[in-house]
Design a protein around this nucleic acid. Structure first.
Lengths: 152, 152
DNA sequence: CTGTTTGCAAATGGTTTGCATAACC
DNA sequence: GGTTATGCAAACCATTTGCAAACAG
């Protein structure tokens, strides 16, 4: 797990520099993200987790904070098509948007490497598109479900 | 545009073979898809379009039909993260899930070629995942918005 | 005829918003 | 102290569901 303290200091500075206020709710939400590196948390997930330490937090605050963090580039939205937005810490220097989604158990695994850089460049040139980021989803059966073999 | 008549006959057969009933609503919705090849239609879009020819259709019927068509593999859901599901005709023999999404104007362009086959195979092997399909989204600025240059 | 499909309206679930109060700076 | 952020409840929007009536086979 990442150095939480560093992240929190960084957040604090970034908030202050943009004239946003440093509040316990915002710090806590960032802490949750650090403690769940690699997870794809929904607003509800975060609400539940934060509530354990800060029972008075409102769901709306969670949503507003996620909106803010996303706008600041600290976290990113990812969509798995399950009806809810999910969020993960922005990985600086490399994208982390390759997901393997099992269409049976719904499990989501993350693919680390950025095998797509070449493709990104090629497509960007061909279509005259200034590509800043990408997101790749592979749909199929994970190892476990593959064995089960009861593909309905 | 694709041969609409062929598509409709195909749909009719497929419905009958699975003991689903052939209804004017279902045929009309398929017709709309054929007439908007390449578009990424939301349920609301389809409802609006079908209503012009069949004013009594209910929105729920549209949703149920989309669900059915997706289950039958005739159409596919794509997610652009704008809060609504979008649908497009399944392209047999090739995937058509490469989208260029402009983060300024929201425009969506489609990338035709399947440059991802190699990557798909490699990732599948490495992660022991039985990959059936993939979906790629590139986020950035389209040619037009790039010129405008007022990025934000 | 019989079971599937439809339209309507009400319910649902995730997310947003208005507003008075509380908290940061 | 002035403004920003919060919590609550109500509003919102896309989608789903229950049910009686309509329709396909």
């Amino acid at each position: 797990m990442i150095n939480v303290k560093d992240r929190l200091v960084f957040l604090q500075e970034k908030l202050t520099s943009k004239n946003y206020r440093v509040t316990p709710q915002r710090l806590l939400i960032m802490e949750i993200f650090c403690q769940h590196e690699g997870a794809h948390l929904s607003a509800e997930d975060i609400y539940r987790l934060v509530s354990q330490q800060f029972p008075d937090i409102g769901l709306a605050t969670v949503y507003r904070t996620l909106e803010l963090f996303a706008k600041m580039g600290i976290i990113e939205r990812v969509h798995f098509g399950d009806g809810k937005n999910r969020y993960e810490l922005t990985q600086h220097g490399k994208h982390a948007h390759h997901h393997l989604i099992c269409i049976k158990c719904g499990g989501v695994a993350e693919v680390d490497e950025d095998l797509l850089e070449k493709l990104e460049r090629a497509v960007g040139e061909e279509y005259q598109f200034d590509i800043l980021d990408h997101q790749v989803k592979f749909y199929g059966y994970c190892q476990r479900c593959r064995k089960g073999d009861t593909h309905d």
